[in-house]
């Protein structure tokens, strides 16, 4: 059974239909990439999964539970973390306070401390800057903080929205290495990216979204060699 499953989901912004009935699934342990151009509906899809938007039709299941109508603030304690587009760290709070916010739904202090230690180990730079205001971090550091904050909830699945946005090529590589190692440590990943090459590189499977519809899907390696995909998304 799929860990996360969307069935015929439709989302509207007022009168405009942004998602026109999409279905896909994510299995435990996978890295799934959702690729597509600007405005294809990738971010909308993630927002709908975590309840920041509600679908007009269709249903969403997570771990066998119907979460279609679950409010956003109840999603994280089910084991789903969302690293939003543009990081959205709390800029007026310190790095440490941001990470503590990531563990908001957890109450066991020793578990939180262990999670904090794990995050600092994965992102040593966050520990160096733990008392710095998040707004003063560089883009790459903010991305690390957003990921660390999400990991603080010890999620089963992590949804990442454009982690490479606005970062230098070296940092993009670093971030993707981290995503891979997070996945290897047992967390399922649903990755939304405009950088299709990078995304297909680390993904097991991928779905291609075009103006609110899934137009192609399949094995990431196969998609990388697909002529149409190459032309449209890989710039070859």
């Amino acid at each position: 059974m799929a860990m996360l499953e969307l069935k015929d989901v439709e989302v509207y912004y007022g009168m405009i239909q942004a998602i026109k009935g999409i279905s896909f699934e994510v299995n435990e342990g996978e890295v799934i990439a959702l690729i597509g151009a600007n405005g294809a509906g990738k971010t909308t899809t993630l927002h709908t999964i975590t309840g920041l938007l509600s679908p007009k039709a269709g249903s969403i299941f997570f771990d066998g539970q119907d979460i279609t109508k679950t409010p956003a603030h109840k999603i994280v304690s089910l084991g789903m973390a969302h690293v939003p587009e543009g990081r959205r760290v709390f800029s007026q709070m310190t790095v440490y306070q941001n990470l503590k916010m990531g563990a908001y739904t957890r109450s066991d202090k020793s578990e939180i401390d262990a999670a904090l230690e794990m995050v600092y180990k994965r992102f040593p730079r966050l520990e160096e800057r733990k008392n710095q205001l998040a707004g003063t971090l560089s883009g790459g550091e903010q991305q690390m903080l957003a990921m660390g904050r999400a990991l603080m909830s010890h999620p089963k699945i992590i949804l990442m929205d454009e982690p490479s946005m606005g970062l230098s090529p070296i940092l993009v590589n670093e971030i993707f290495d981290i995503i891979r190692s997070v996945n290897e440590a047992g967390t399922t990943v649903l990755l939304v990216e405009q950088n299709a090459k990078k995304a297909l590189d680390i993904a097991d499977r991928a779905y291609v979204l075009e103006t609110g519809k899934i137009v192609t899907s399949g094995d990431a390696k196969e998609l990388m060699n697909d002529d149409a995909i190459k032309k449209a998304y890989l710039g070859e």
Partner: peptide
């Protein structure tokens, strides 16, 4: 925790919800 949640909500409601905060 409640005070920190207030700070988080004042800065970004959406991100605060993703942390599990009931806005």
């Amino acid at each position: 925790k409640a005070g920190q949640a207030m700070l988080a909500v004042s800065e970004d409601k959406g991100a605060a919800q993703l942390m599990g905060i009931n806005v």
